[in-house]
């Protein structure tokens, strides 16, 4: 395995770049980051819509989430592949298509994570803010979302790990990320499929495991801040919470 790694490390890392488009691990990470950044506003919108006081907005968002969660990501990728050129008029690359598919996908999943964080906030926060005369939107922007988004940072990091894993499907429509590189290597070597694919598994493992560890650290910091927040809600445990945090 190590000799395969030393022979093909460049292909695995950046694909055929600069002789071709960016590929390999670099493309995996670029796609993942792009998907997370673009999906984030969609997810926030979905989460706010899911908790909206207006019925039809709530329902529309629920239908979107149920539909996306009800079909495989692969199917969403195929839909994006043929719908995107029709909608935008341009034939975008496989990687861009996959990023769009992931944005639709994560809009629902990340949206649910943010919604859970919104629901978990004590109603007292909304009540206090509205009682001061602040409007629904001001309350959302200045009081509710800042807290909810901070609280769901661990979930967001977990979603990022999932995104990285999901980019492995991109090769099916022609994107040259790291799974594609592995297929190329296997096609060349032919006699060492186990080494090639186990090495691929190893590459993903290293990436995702490191990201999960970082996510755990973030989670610990958020937990510490949040136990302080419990003290803000009042109750006999307020002094106790202060003592423990």
């Amino acid at each position: 395995m190590l000799d395969i790694l030393s022979d093909y490390w460049l292909l695995l890392l950046v694909g055929q770049f600069p002789q071709g488009p960016l590929g390999g691990i670099a493309l995996t990470l670029v796609m993942s980051i792009a998907a997370l950044l673009l999906a984030f506003p969609v997810a926030v919108a979905v989460a706010v819509a899911r908790t909206s006081p207006i019925v039809w907005i709530r329902r529309a968002a629920s239908i979107y989430v149920t539909a996306v969660r009800g079909i495989p990501l692969l199917l969403i990728i195929f839909w994006s592949f043929f719908v995107l050129p029709l909608v935008t008029g341009i034939n975008s690359s496989a990687s861009v298509t996959v990023v769009c598919a992931l944005v639709v996908y994560e809009g629902a999943y990340l949206g649910e994570a943010i919604r859970a964080a919104l629901d978990a906030l004590p109603t007292g926060q909304t009540e206090a803010s509205r009682s001061l005369g602040m409007s629904y939107w001001t309350t959302m922007m200045k009081v509710i979302l800042p807290q909810a988004l901070f609280n769901c940072l661990p979930s967001m990091m977990n979603q990022f790990v999932l995104i990285v894993k999901n980019t492995s499907l991109a090769y099916i429509i022609g994107s040259q990320e790291v799974t594609f590189s592995a297929h190329s290597i296997n096609a060349q070597l032919l006699t060492k499929p186990f080494e090639v694919y186990f090495m691929l598994a190893g590459i993903y493992f290293v990436m995702c495991y490191s990201l999960s560890r970082i996510a755990k650290l973030v989670e610990r910091r958020v937990e510490r801040k949040r136990s302080g927040q419990l003290a803000v809600q009042g109750g006999r445990n307020s002094t106790l919470a202060r003592a423990s945090s």
Partner: peptide
């Protein structure tokens, strides 16, 4: 199994 994508597991 958590850190390796399902499709890669299938390939292995």
């Amino acid at each position: 199994h958590r850190n390796v994508p399902s499709i890669v597991q299938i390939f292995v």
